[in-house]
Amino acid sequence: MKIKTLTLAAAITVGMVGAAEARDQIRIVGSSTVFPFSTAVAEQFGKSSSFSTPVVESTGTGGGMKLFCSGVGEDHPDMTNASRRMKKSEFEACTKNGIDITEVQVGFDGIVIANAKSGPDISLSLEQVFLALAAEIPQGGKLVANPNKMWSDIDPSLPAQKIEVLGPPPTSGTRDAFVEIAMEGGCKTLAGAKELGLANKACHAVREDGAFIEAGENDNLIVQKLEANPNAFGIFGFSFLDQNADKLKGATVDGTMPEFEEIAAGNYPVSRSLFFYVKQQHVGVIPGIKEFVTEFTSENAWGPDGYLIGKGLIPLPDAARAAMAKQAQGLQPLSM
């Protein structure tokens, strides 16, 4: 018994010493939205090259940036995924720690408003989305707590049905993008909103009286709840609508259906760009980074017939993709 314990203790010590050895595995952190694509490339890369499979962590965009910009060296990740562009403050934090960055735009992601197949078809404008979900809306020249209980309260052409929307919590990148694009977009076109101080960030407040339900980070859960409740709508990423097209249907937003072609062409209003960032100092130090970037930006991966499309990625237009691939493989530095 004693000897066994000693052996195990020795094994741990050896393990600790082993940690000092050089890392031969690429480490990627960042957005949970880019996670499915990054992992698919990592797996393909690990199988088809002589390098070991990169480790991809899902930390969220902000958390990933923090880890990524914390320094140069083996203890810090080599790449970070982001469901939005790097902020100036994050770029400065990176520069301060002596990090040079290459930015790569991977493609687009649409955010859909969907309900069960058995529910009503619905066509919304961004303005109506705002009126349905904002905490406060302008009415009679002043801001009042959102009085809309039914969709038909907003516009008689909408169904006479209780407003019930399941969406992601504030910690989620999908929520960030949704309030920034849909809510702020709707707010901008709303007459008399700006005069009452409803602009930019002020438009991001989502109502908390039960009409908007925070359903957790798990989009599959929202899908299940929508199936059970045909009167409810859900907000989530396009890939979940794509995978569950037999159960759900997407709402038309500003006259455009949430379809692959429409998002790719930039017609669908609620869509965002996806990125990853590479730490240039690690290229050549951690083996395989350059090859990984090349794999990610190959037509076989992110092209219109690539395997990432099967995972729900919406590709960049052909010309932009070719330019981006060149820029990425040349590791062009980012400046801000």
């Binding site: 094994a11 741990i12 393990g15 600790m16 082993g18 940690a19 996670f35 990054s38 992992t39 990592a42 797996e43 690990g46 070991s52 499979t53 480790v55 991809v56 962590e57 899902s58 930390t59």
Partner: peptide
């Protein structure tokens, strides 16, 4: 440790 890891771990590190 909440990460996508394909390779089977072989040591404590």
């Amino acid at each position: 440790m909440v990460a996508f890891i394909v390779d089977i771990p072989r040591s404590f590190t």
